[in-house]
Nucleic acid binder design. Structure first.
Lengths: 335, 335
DNA sequence: CTGAAAGCGCTAACAA
DNA sequence: TTGTTAGCGCTTTCAG
């Protein structure tokens, strides 16, 4: 037998409307009554039923997060920013992993809408809005996080991935490298494509020949891509689509008896926790993941509250962090 | 204007009870009518409101997960197991990070109960049930995951942390080590305490003098603990409370010009993703985190469905994985 | 300042 | 087989 507002009302000898008022801090309840109700609540150990509450005022205090894969160390910190901010604004957080599958992404969005989520933070795995019919006709506000979706009329927060990649490659070029290859990520992910474009632009600007392969955002992909590339090319530097991929590359390089950065320099992207812990420490592009998450929730909250209608696209600053895996190109090596 | 079951009923020219029936796959609806309703649903793009649904039948399809910190790479894989299983059973997943704070843990449990979560998977930061009054009087089923809470009458799934530590230390002893120190975790976390006990037991059994310090489950703590210990002790092997701590230790050891494992062997616990990626690859105790998560949801679902009343405590098997950070104790080193 | 009553969207007897 | 009618627990006019 669960305790409802009626039980409290009965015990405090007031109507349930009054109990509801004290629950909602309505100031116009006589102090004496308020106390009586409060006491009844405590004596009964009453907890308001959020479901009934949400139904009654047709709102909800839950927001959803769709993330590709929490198992990729970049996302937990992003998710942490989202969660902390969500709680700060009074929301509870639903989380689902899409594994970069548009179908799954779509299905989870649907589920969250059915759960009456007040809004959704989406780290999307689609490039163009047309791939997901009806997404933009949803009543539920969505904010794109970390990865943009062209043609989608949503708020968004990310970094300038193209510029980030450009910076990384320029850095390598500045160090004297000319044979710089790129271990690109999946070509159906926006951030990945932008990084590839940045790489290409920097190479072209310097009059250098690009060399890259597509892969996935994980360690094994880094291993495979690097192995394949070393069979047909001799880079002196590699720009990996993310840190996990960078580690894959580093391991095949060193397993071949070559040294990072002496023989080959490697730079990643993300700045995951491990980048500071590994030996050598990874040089990389640092992305303010936590802050991206916090900002996303802020934008979402504005939408939920309806205090803004024009769509906003915020770009946070990335930063090149120089650690131990890049050095000047001043020696050659042979296979 | 959102679309409700009434709109569908009107369009299909049936009562809303009938619509409800087709929504719930009730077999006794004439095929013809079923089709008509189905069509109306599609034409209107109707999506049932899960909140109203849950309220009506006084159930919910959400479960909550309270995790210490998703940012610790051990937990995402656990959470992944939980999420995958949750979706498989038809649940949506709430997640909250407690940061190992009993107060926060308590508050989030409360919130989830208010949200009418069908059940809660709890990775707890308290040792004894008494620390959280009324926890066991909740109507919401709870399953303890990864960390037990003594005195709590809940289902639980974990590994035998004491035995795991014992195995690790025995392994080190078998390699010839005698000066084995332990970088223990927080003493308010059950798994951490069990590991310390296992360490102590193995040392005692071998007639060896234990040497340990308490810390936290993260990298910085490993750094601090190792630095402090090296000031007053000369271990030839260290057993770290988890992999992150192990990496902290490895880095201070190598920063001192010593070699792992040549000068000092290091073994961790958890087997996080990086353990296989780092150089040297970390020897550690592998915990079946994903499986723990899956099992926890299975137990929870049994409770929710009410198909079992006796409480169950499942212990999954850990495994010592020998990689590159432990070797025989056959040389000495000086500071 | 407080109570009565009408919903929120959906489900589940109970009738028809 | 389908419709009618109460609720689920809470909020919110509208009276009093």
């Amino acid at each position: 037998m669960k305790i409802t507002i009626n039980d409290v009302a009965a015990r405090a000898q007031v109507s349930k409307a009054t109990v509801s008022r004290v629950l909602n801090q309505n100031p116009q309840v006589k102090e004496e009554i308020r106390q009586r109700v409060q006491q009844a609540i405590e004596e009964l150990g009453f907890r308001p039923n959020a479901v009934a509450r949400n139904l009654a005022n047709n709102t909800s205090n839950m927001i959803g997060l769709i993330v590709p894969d929490m198992t990729n160390p970049y996302f937990p910190v992003l998710a942490r920013g989202i969660e902390d901010a969500a709680h700060m604004y009074g929301y509870s957080l639903f989380i689902s992993n899409s594994d970069n599958e548009p179908k799954i992404e779509r299905e989870y969005i649907q589920r969250m809408v059915e759960q009456q989520a007040a809004g959704i933070v989406l780290i999307s795995s689609i490039l163009k809005e047309e791939q997901v019919t009806g997404l933009s006709s949803l009543r539920t506000p969505i904010v794109l996080c970390d990865r943009l979706v062209s043609g989608a009329p949503f708020d968004a927060v990310s970094i300038d991935n193209r510029q980030a990649a450009f910076d990384a490659v320029r850095y390598l070029i500045g160090l004297g490298h000319r044979r710089i290859c790129h271990l690109a990520g999946p070509n159906f992910v926006q951030s990945s494509e932008m990084r590839k474009l940045g790489y290409l632009a920097a190479m072209e600007e310097a009059g250098l020949e690009p060399f890259y392969s597509n892969g996935a955002f994980h360690y094994e992909s880094g291993v495979q891509q690097m192995e394949a590339i070393l069979k047909e090319y001799r880079p002196t530097a590699v720009f990996a689509s993310n840190d996990l991929v960078a580690y894959g590359a580093i391991n095949v390089i060193e397993d071949r008896g070559l040294k990072v950065p002496d023989d080959i320099s490697v730079i990643g992207c993300d700045d995951i926790l491990f980048s500071r812990m590994s030996r050598p420490k990874l040089s990389t592009i640092s992305i303010p993941a936590y802050q991206i998450g916090v900002t996303a929730v802020k934008l979402l909250d504005e939408r939920v509250k309806g205090v803004r209608s024009e769509t906003k696209n915020v770009i946070l600053k990335h930063e090149l962090v120089h650690r131990e895996t890049c050095s000047g190109e001043d020696r050659t090596y042979g296979f």
